[in-house]
Nucleic acid binder design. Sequence first.
DNA 1: ACAAAAGCTGACCAAAGTGTCAACTTACTG
DNA 2: CAGTAAGTTGACACTTTGGTCAGCTTTTGT
Lengths: 210, 210
Amino acid sequence: MAQQRNTPEERIRERNVRLIIKAGIEIFARKGFDGTRIAEIADASGLPKANVYYYFSSKEEIYTAIIAHLLAGWDDALKYISADREPAEAFRLYIRAKLDYTRKNLAETRLFASEIIQGARFLKKKDRQHMRDITDRHVAVVEGWIAAGKMLPVDPRHLFIMLWAATQFYAEFEPLAADGLKKARLRTEDYDAAATTIAETILRGILPSR
Amino acid sequence: MAQQRNTPEERIRERNVRLIIKAGIEIFARKGFDGTRIAEIADASGLPKANVYYYFSSKEEIYTAIIAHLLAGWDDALKYISADREPAEAFRLYIRAKLDYTRKNLAETRLFASEIIQGARFLKKKDRQHMRDITDRHVAVVEGWIAAGKMLPVDPRHLFIMLWAATQFYAEFEPLAADGLKKARLRTEDYDAAATTIAETILRGILPSR
DNA sequence: ACAAAAGCTGACCAAAGTGTCAACTTACTG
DNA sequence: CAGTAAGTTGACACTTTGGTCAGCTTTTGT
């Protein structure tokens, strides 16, 4: 019986919770918190509504579980801004990683945007503080680069907002972005072109001209 | 009785429709289409629900009326990219005007964002085409500037998306932007600083170095 | 002054929503 | 393999929602 240790009941629970969260991400992203009906999540996850309530006791509980799940995967894409890199490389990597993340996690990205637009009602204080801390650390690195003459004196906070905005836009506002590019849908190569244009433009804008 | 000519019935209708639309903008922006309850719009506009239905026959009709109203005010802020200007001036004006518009029309801006994130379900084909046409015209101007050596060869479509993203972000994601700037709320001077950072960074990124 | 048009609204429905529950089946454990 | 814990679910209770309507009041043109 040795490695039966894989908690079989946990497996069922795990699988169903995953199904519910996956369906929830899609639907919350498209409809927002108030617009989402639990029955719709149940249908999309292939479970009866009552079964959804067996795992989650309310709509809010599903939603906050999703937000937590989403923030967990966030940090990874943002680790490139560190003082031991050269600015050009750091920003290039950051921009690519961020665009890559949003492209591969469309629904999560939109859900997060939706939550913010709707007033960040369910984003925990702790989570906001965590994001602020990361920003502060990045800002400090950029200030170091500026002091070292490796970067022009650009306001680091507005710079990061600009990067955040530019890299999120394609996923969040895909219909608009596609229209702007005269395409029916965005493809990987569009994200690549975006990364190139953003990186090259911004880098020329923040690096000392040689 | 002379100048009673100001169509008195029109006045009542006008006023109430305006109240409903104003309340609708706020609530649709915060809750999205599916999340908005007509009773809430009625309360916010100080009218009984049945009175709202006297002017609009459905939720969708209110919503699309708002979208139309919003797009009408859109074009104005985007008129600065024209071939008879120098790129630097044109982009500076464009960025300022766009930020200004979003700051002064927070709810509209968020409502539009909400509509796009939710899949642009109620944005009419005609309206999307109109926006595409404007973009095409701007792209042509930029291509002219590039051909004339007044700008570096930057992909104009991605450039406009970058500008769009950067200038919308502060209004749409105010809580995030405020956190990023370490402020409780955004003020006019933050929008000014944003305009400066965006304009100066982007301009260095797209103008030939002299 | 007065009829017609416009505006107003409480009360009402059918449909859809959230959340509950008791009874059933399946899975695991000793 | 019996007993218990976990999982499943149709049916139900209660609330909210979009939308209607008949009859009321106000405004307006003449």
